[in-house]
Nucleic acid binder design. Structure first.
Lengths: 189, 189
DNA sequence: GTTATCATTTGATCTATATCAAATTCAGGT
DNA sequence: ACCTGAATTTGATATAGATCAAATGATAAC
């Protein structure tokens, strides 16, 4: 537990011990098996998750097709952002892609902690800012880069991802089909 | 001035009067003519702008092509988010698309106010969260919708935009060429 | 070891949208 | 009103990547 909070502080900035103690009262540990779905499309999800161990994936189902939108690994947060932050029905599913240990925080706890602790509010601001910056990158990469460039880019920034999730999920995350990804990986001899 | 702060509170949530007074000390009013460029590619921009009157546009120049990324109108913020929030050289230019009155806040002021006032930190969190939610929508719209659907969607959520910015900027914002936008607007008779 | 299931590759077409090019319409300045 | 350059439309062609289909390869259960 100490260790986890340490990780959070390391990644996102320091917290007062007062705040840390209070956080501990508000969170729940959960364990999930690979393949379990923790958020479904249409659901109002008011939980945000922090991956202690394992990996999770948010995806859309658009006319039957599974399109990955976000991956989270150790020490990262995941939620249906439209639902958790936008108070709307989730367009996403979220599933665990490995057996995992996660921390769950409800929006209620989240709001209570934000209101009470300036440093928690700051932490959240940093978390949200990071997501915003990643999305900005993602938008320009979809808009300006070819399938091949996008693949090379993800390889360069997250080389581990290839090991941990099947290619079909990577393909849809990169906005291309599985076939195109395969061709990009095995350039015509 | 009162009015502006009122608008901000209305849009993003209340502020203590203590905080409001301090904000006033930190901001600058600026006026710009249509066409003026206030941020250039490559620059470390540590300013965020709030549009009091007029309109601004953030855009990329990718091998000579002007690609709009963001529009801001009255009571909206604009900055080079990569530079202001990510402390990196700006990939964007920002220009005023009409004669405008804007408020400028430096990152230094921004950080000072965030540190000092819990409610300012909260305000920023809300601003950033809104951008994140918009970007999320933008990503799914680029990924899942046809050129025609994207155009209809923007018409439905920002009908005013068509009046205020030339079509070429809208086209590139929607991730299509000017010609495609024109065809989408005038379906083959 | 054999079978069944899933992941990946390879091949042949198809399609939405880009690109290139030219014609038309519009708006501000004189 | 007339001119000039910008904005928009229209047309013909090209292309990256999608789609459809089938083959191959890997993994795990039995």
């Amino acid at each position: 537990m100490e260790m986890i909070i340490n990780q959070i502080e390391k990644e996102y900035g320091p917290l007062s011990s007062d705040c840390k103690n209070e956080i501990i009262k508000h969170i729940h540990f959960l364990t999930f098996k690979k393949g379990e779905i923790i958020v479904r499309e249409g659901q109002y999800s008011d939980k945000i998750y922090f991956i202690v161990e394992g990996a999770a994936r948010a995806y859309y189902l658009v006319d039957g097709k599974d399109v990955s939108d976000y991956f989270a690994f150790e020490n990262e947060f995941i939620s249906s952002i439209i639902s958790f932050f936008g108070h709307q029905p989730s367009p996403h599913y979220i599933e665990l892609v490995q057996d995992s240990i996660v921390i769950e925080v409800s929006r209620k706890s989240f709001d209570t902690l934000s209101k009470r602790f300036h440093d928690f509010e700051h932490l959240i601001r940093i978390v949200v800012t990071k997501v915003m910056l990643q999305q900005q990158e993602r938008i320009s990469s979809i808009l300006f880069q070819s399938a091949e460039q996008r693949y090379k880019h993800i390889l360069s920034i997250r080389p581990d991802i290839i090991q941990r999730v099947p290619l079909k999920h990577i393909a849809s995350y990169l906005g291309m089909t599985l076939e195109t990804l395969s061709r990009v990986r095995n350039p015509k001899t």
